[in-house]
Every structure is written in C-alpha cells, then in structure tokens.
C-alpha cells in the first residue's frame, strides 16, 4: 500500500454483500477521485488477513450464517480493532452494523460482536421493510437520511454512542432512532448502497479520513433528484 493514496477496505464481500453493498465502495472511490484524491480499494475476503492500516472500512449486510461467521473471523483476526484504535473511519451497514455492537442474534442464538460500538441487537417481532427517513444528529451537519431498510433486528444503544438519526419514517433501531455513531464509526440500517442516496455521508467519511475541513463541490444533480424523490416517497 502506498502512503499517499486513500485506502478503502471492503470487509468480506464473500460473506456480507447481499444488497448491492459494493455500491458504497464504488461511490466513495468515485467521489474521492472527483476531488483529485488518489484511491486504492481492497476487497478483503473472509479467508484473508484484515489489514489494519487502511483509512476507511466498509462492511455490509448479509444473512444470519455469514454474519455470525464474519463476526467470529474479525474477532479472531484483530486487524479491524487495531485499525479502529488507530482512527480509521468505518461505515457499517445492517448486519455489519449489528456485529459492531456487543452482541447480536443470528439463527436464534446470541452471538458475540466486536464491541466497537456500545450497542446490542436482538430480534424484533416483525421484519422492518421499506423506505426509511431520519433527521441526522445535528452535530454531524448533514441533510436528512434517506434509505431502504430490510431487517428483523432491533438495536439498543448504550451511553457510549449517539443515534445517527431520529426516525421520521420507517423503523431503524426501534422506531425512534436509527443507526449509531461514535468517533469515526457510522452504523446504519439504511441498507445496501446507502451512499447512493446520501452523498453527504460519503463526503463526511472522506473528510474524516483525509482530515480536510471541506471538500470541493461536485455535480450532484442526479443524486439530488433521487433524494428528493425518495424523501417524498417516504412520506414523512
């Protein structure tokens, strides 16, 4: 890995890539490149060691079995813990979000998580499926969250994290809050290619990773049209 380029790791696409999760890697790389930031991307499979020196880590959604397997391998490997301790930025989606907490449920059993976010997840009575919309924590200075959620879990936040957003349509963690953040780690139930509808979150991750206070504006005509359409469709 060269030292100048921004290094982005996609964690375990062989296990956690059920809903177009590749999109987040593509979008981050594109938005960095449009700002003239050189990027190197790495797709790290579950049978490979997890590098600890990258700048941004992405982890996606998946079924119960692969989720439990991914958590176990990340705990055993330790590379991701070292990366987070060194200040790496993280976007964790859906199953990947759950496994960042202390514990989660998969195939009816309670599984240990990475403990990198102060939260735990269990099963809801119903599956949360549909458009989701929320007002993001004002401290992050971002426009409303727009997404599509599809999960059976409910997530309970501890004092060591803040909700990413207050839900205005959809379920999220529990019908009130959605996602969580702490330091440079963002977790969300807005699944799959969440950054397609939320380019401002992509830019936040890029700012965290580069230390830049601001990034030059890019043409977001189509993402803006998509956001307007989906925020209206969520009906909040």
């Amino acid at each position: 890995m060269s030292t100048e380029a921004l290094r982005i790791v996609w964690i375990f696409p062989d296990l956690l890539s059920t809903y177009g999760d590749r999109g987040n890697l593509l979008i981050l790389a594109r938005r960095a490149a449009m700002r003239g930031i050189p990027v190197e991307t790495y797709s790290v499979r579950s049978d490979q060691p997890m590098p600890s020196t990258a700048d941004i880590y992405l982890i996606g959604g998946g079924e119960d079995g692969p989720q439990a397997l991914a958590a176990q391998r990340l705990i055993n490997d330790g590379g991701l813990h070292r990366a987070v301790n060194q200040g790496a930025a993280v976007l964790a989606i859906c199953a990947g979000y759950q496994l960042f907490g202390h514990s989660f449920f998969a195939k009816g059993a309670k599984c240990p998580g990475l403990g990198l976010l102060d939260l735990h997840s269990d099963r809801g009575e119903t599956r949360a499926v549909g458009e989701i919309r929320g007002d993001i924590d004002p401290r992050l200075g971002l426009p409303p969250l727009s997404g599509f959620e599809n999960h059976g879990g409910r997530t309970h936040l501890g004092p060591g994290v803040a909700p990413l957003a207050r839900v205005t349509a959809g379920i999220g963690n529990d019908g009130q809050t959605e996602g969580a953040w702490h330091g440079k780690i963002l977790g969300t139930y807005s699944h799959g290619p969440a950054l397609a509808r939320n380019p401002a979150i992509a830019d936040l991750l890029l700012r965290w990773a580069t230390g830049a206070d601001s990034l030059s504006p890019v043409d977001d005509t189509w993402p803006d049209k998509l956001r307007a359409e989906r925020l209206a469709a969520a009906g909040a």
Partner: peptide
C-alpha cells in the same frame, strides 16, 4: 420488489 439496491450488484 420495492428495493432497488440490486442495481449495484
């Protein structure tokens, strides 16, 4: 289906 995230697959 209401979910379009497969577009990125």
């Amino acid at each position: 289906g209401f979910d379009t995230s497969w577009l990125y697959d």
